[in-house]
Simulated assay, not measured.
Amino acid sequence: MRRSWPYLLLLPALLIVALVVLLPLVFSLYSSFTAYRLTRPDSITRFIGFANYVRLFQDMDFWWAFGRTILFLTIVLNAELSLGLGLALLLEQVTRGQRLLRTILMFPMMFSPILVGFQFKFMFNDNIGIVNYILQHGFGMQESVPWLVDGRLALFALAVAEIWNSTSVFAILLLAGLMSMPSDPIEAAKVDGCSAWQAFRHVTLPYLMPFVWIAMTIRSLEVGRAFDIVKIMTNGGPGGRTELIWTLMARTGYVDGRMGLANAMGYISIILSMAFTVHFFAKLSAARRHVY
């Protein structure tokens, strides 16, 4: 009886997890094999097999959204890594007030993505945005730039908002790596006559790579699910040119009412996210073996 007490105490939590997480997952997986429409509840019983998945693989709108998601993910992750690494290296050199600077650095990640979306939507506004105001009054540009109307510029504006919101994740993790790094290898490199760049390239950076891949894993899952900022700033426009997988999924499920097709899209996205996670964890394991 005493051995069963821990399991009995965990039972309420397990039931809640099953109700809140497991049952919706099972239902969404089942509905992805049906012709379920929100406007026709009886369609949940119409089983169509893999038809939704086959339809998605033949749908160019889905592939365009998939390509934009990969492009967006690549731009954002590389920019956040570069900026985060630079901020971490600068903060490591600070001897006084570092705690205050670390706290200030974390401010952007504390803002809700919805709030960030509204903030940057007004900043990039054609008529009243501060970005166009600076370009016109500070750099002498005559015409306002249609940041959220032009397809390429709109994707750039979304990337800027996402990078501002989450660069601090990379900076904090990489700063933790720098602070935990032993000083002996750097001192040995200096004694051997290595320049600052050589010491960074061959000593510091390999030691930081496990932290880089941890940050990459966390942020790839978050950016791959980007929805709030895109929804607020462009809503997938103009003309669907900033439509990402998760905004397309929401439009398919809640606007068009094709929930079965949207759930199939969601499970394809989950498989892609798992593939990215496995790839990054493989890189993490290789980096840890190299260091230790």
Rank of each mutant, 00 (worst) to 15 (best):
W5P: 13
W5M: 11
L10A: 03
L11Q: 01
V17K: 09
A18P: 05
L19S: 09
V20A: 09
V21S: 11
L22N: 05
L23E: 03
V26Q: 07
S31L: 06
S32M: 05
A35T: 07
R37F: 12
L38K: 08
T39M: 06
F47A: 01
F50G: 11
L56K: 07
M60A: 13
F62G: 05
R68G: 07
I75P: 03
G84V: 07
L85H: 02
E92A: 01
I104Y: 10
M106R: 03
P108T: 11
F111M: 11
G117C: 05
Q119E: 10
Q119N: 07
F122G: 15
F124A: 13
G129F: 11
G151I: 05
L153A: 11
L153C: 14
A154G: 03
A161S: 10
E162T: 15
I163M: 04
W164K: 04
T167C: 01
V169T: 10
F170H: 05
A171G: 03
I172Q: 02
L173G: 06
L175M: 11
A176K: 01
A176W: 00
L178N: 13
M181T: 04
M181E: 09
P182T: 10
S195Y: 00
A196W: 00
Q198H: 11
Q198E: 06
A199S: 15
P206Q: 08
M209W: 01
F211Y: 11
I218R: 00
L221Q: 13
V223D: 09
G224A: 14
D228E: 14
I229H: 01
V230Y: 05
K231F: 03
I232V: 10
P238F: 07
E243T: 12
L244T: 08
W246D: 15
W246H: 08
T247R: 01
A250E: 06
R251E: 06
G253K: 01
G257T: 04
L261N: 02
M274A: 14
V278L: 03
K283Y: 08
A287Q: 01
R288E: 15
R289T: 15
